[in-house]
C-alpha cells in the first residue's frame, strides 16, 4: 500500500504541492488528471524520491515503511518504479544492459531480456544506446520494457500516451494493463473475481487525454490543481467533466476542499 499524508513539497524554494493525501491499496490503479503545471509530474518525482523535490511536511509510506526521506535507489529496490516521459540518453549503455540492470537490482538475474523485448517489439533496439535518438513511441516502449524487467509493485507512469501514434497506443495500453495485473484474460482455473482479489500491483498514471482508460481499468481518478488534490472520484466522470467544463471548474472544488 502507498499512503501519503498531508504532503507538502518545495521545488527551488517554491511550494508546489500542498496538503496531499493519497491512499493506493494493493491491486488499485489511480489516474491523475490536471492542467499543465499543476504539479502532476512533481508528485510522481516526489514519490520516486528525486532530491530536488524537497518534502517540507507530511509523509510517504510504502509497504508500511516510511520512505519520506529515502534515496531513490532504496525506493526502487523496495518496489517502486517509474516510466518517464522524457528520460535522458545514456551514451555507451546499451538498452540490453539497462534492462538487465533493472532485473538485477530486483534480484531477477535470470530474466530473458530478448523475450521480454519481443513482447513490446523492441528486440531490434537492444543494441542501441539507451534512449539515443528514440522517437516518442520508442521511448515509451523502452520505458515499459525496463519496468517489465524491474517488475515493481507500485508503478508511476508519466503520460504514457504522449507522443505515441495510434498504432502503438494499444500496445502501450495493453502492456501497462499487464504490468498492473489489469488484463482481461479468462483463466481456466481462476474466476475473474478470484483474479481480482489476487491483484497486488499498484499504479498511478498521469494522463491528459484519458486514452489509457480504454485499456486499463482504473479504480479511481484524482485531479491535481495548483498543487492541491481537488477531487477523487470515478475516472470516467472526471474525464467527462473536464472535457465539458474544463479545469476552471476544479477551482471551485479546490476552494471547497480547503
Amino acid at each position: 500500500m502507498l499512503l501519503i499524508e498531508d504532503l507538502q513539497v518545495e521545488l527551488a524554494g517554491k511550494t508546489i504541492l500542498k496538503h496531499i493525501d493519497l491512499e493506493i491499496k494493493p491491486g488499485e490503479t489511480h489516474v491523475l488528471f490536471g492542467p499543465n503545471g499543476s504539479g502532476k509530474t512533481s508528485l510522481l518525482m516526489t514519490i520516486m524520491g528525486y532530491p530536488q523535490y524537497k518534502v517540507t511536511g507530511g509523509k510517504i509510506e510504502f509497504k508500511g515503511v516510511d520512505i519520506t526521506h529515502s534515496p531513490i535507489d532504496e525506493r526502487a529496490r523496495l518496489g517502486i518504479g517509474m516510466s518517464y516521459q522524457r528520460p535522458p540518453t545514456i551514451h555507451g549503455l546499451k538498452t540490453r544492459q539497462m534492462v538487465q540492470i533493472c532485473a538485477d537490482t530486483r534480484g531477477k538475474q535470470d530474466v530473458d531480456v530478448e523475450q521480454l523485448a519481443r513482447k513490446v517489439y523492441f528486440a531490434d533496439f537492444l543494441e542501441r544506446d539507451v534512449n539515443a535518438g528514440f522517437s516518442g513511441g520508442e521511448i515509451k516502449r523502452s520505458e515499459l520494457l525496463q519496468l517489465m524487467a524491474q517488475d515493481p509493485d507500485f508503478m508511476l507512469f508519466d503520460e504514457p500516451e504522449s507522443g505515441v501514434d495510434l498504432e502503438n497506443i494499444a500496445l502501450v495500453g495493453n502492456t501497462i494493463a499487464a504490468l498492473l495485473q489489469k488484463e482481461c484474460m479468462p483463466s481456466k482455473n481462476k474466476s475473474m473475481l478470484q483474479m481480482k482479489r489476487e491483484r497486488t500491483k499498484m499504479g498511478l498514471i498521469i494522463t491528459h487525454t484519458g486514452y489509457i482508460l480504454d485499456y486499463v481499468t482504473v479504480d479511481k481518478g484524482q485531479v491535481l490543481y495548483d498543487g492541491v488534490l481537488s477531487c477523487s472520484s470515478n475516472p470516467r466522470e472526471i474525464l467527462r467533466c473536464i472535457s465539458e467544463m474544463g479545469y476552471e471548474e476544479c477551482v471551485r472544488c479546490t476552494i471547497e476542499n480547503n
Binding site: D73, L93, T105, R106, D129, Q150
Partner: peptide, 23 residues
C-alpha cells in the same frame, strides 16, 4: 542520468560508474 539509473535500483556509485563505463 545518475538519478535515472538510481530509479532502476542502482546506488549512486554504481550509477556513476555505469555512466563512466558507457562514456
Amino acid at each position: 542520468e545518475i538519478t535515472y539509473l538510481m530509479s532502476r535500483g542502482l546506488t549512486e556509485d554504481e550509477a556513476t560508474s555505469t555512466i563512466v563505463r558507457g562514456f
